[in-house]
Design a protein around this nucleic acid. Structure first.
Lengths: 129, 129
DNA sequence: TAATCACATTCAGAAATCCGAATACAATTT
DNA sequence: AAATTGTATTCGGATTTCTGAATGTGATTA
């Protein structure tokens, strides 16, 4: 053993754009799957698969709360890796979770808005006339 | 673009035990291929392949000097990534290049030892009787 | 308890990676 | 120029990773 096994496992978990994006989104703390779905606009199954990889790598953990599942990063040291990574490549623009979460039915969202506001969609984007 | 493309490229280049080992060996500065061969005991072609990947990722560069080729890391920021990586996993033991290089004919080695000392092998390991 | 919602897992084909064998190449020596 | 030495590249098959489709599961509501 000891062929950098631990490091490689971690690096492989990181070496995927979807997973990097998820980790960045979780910098601010935990988020429920529905939020991540809203943020990224990915298929739910796809998102879940990537979350599964992060869990398997020991990077993230989940927590049930009623219908929803919340994910959080349980090895904060990875952010030092990501930060160092940024220093090693040309810069890019960030994302912001809350601004994307306008329609979501998870408990945390229902506290703030009136309850049972079911099924309306994000943004209401008008196609250019 | 901008799907963490740069980061992923770098991470994929790092996510391989042989490449990690090479980068660690090059912390101290440049080394010729023959040294790395002696250090790791890998097939030459295999070593060259991994060096090619590091070059392709823009991490390393080579320099010819007569018969031999010297490699060096040209993006020192990766070491910050590697260091951060260490913090994120259980620790392991390091390696030391010079102690492994006892037989090598590259210019730098010939300066120190008497010249034209050709073809003898490392270590002289006796198989247990 | 049946239906529903949020999310997880399995499966399989496609794509990418890994690595040994063979070969190519450039500088040097004869 | 031919042989030799140190290193690079190409090729192909085995293995792994990726991702869409389909399906499974647990919590909740009716």
């Amino acid at each position: 053993m000891s062929d950098y096994h631990q490091e490689i496992t971690l690096l492989k978990a990181l070496a995927h754009p979807a997973r990097l994006a998820i980790l960045e989104a979780l910098r601010g703390g935990e988020a429920c799957v529905c939020h991540l779905e809203a943020l990224f606009g990915w298929r739910q199954a796809y998102l879940s698969q990537q979350l599964m990889v992060l869990r398997a790598a020991g990077l993230a953990a989940d927590r049930r709360e009623g219908w929803n599942v919340y994910y959080r990063v349980i090895r904060p040291e990875v952010y030092a890796v990501l930060d160092a990574l940024r220093q090693a490549v040309p810069a890019e623009a960030p994302l912001d979770l809350p601004t994307f979460v306008s329609a979501c039915t998870c408990p945390r969202c229902q506290e703030k808005s009136g309850r049972s506001v079911k099924s309306f969609h994000l943004g209401e984007i008008e196609t250019t006339p």
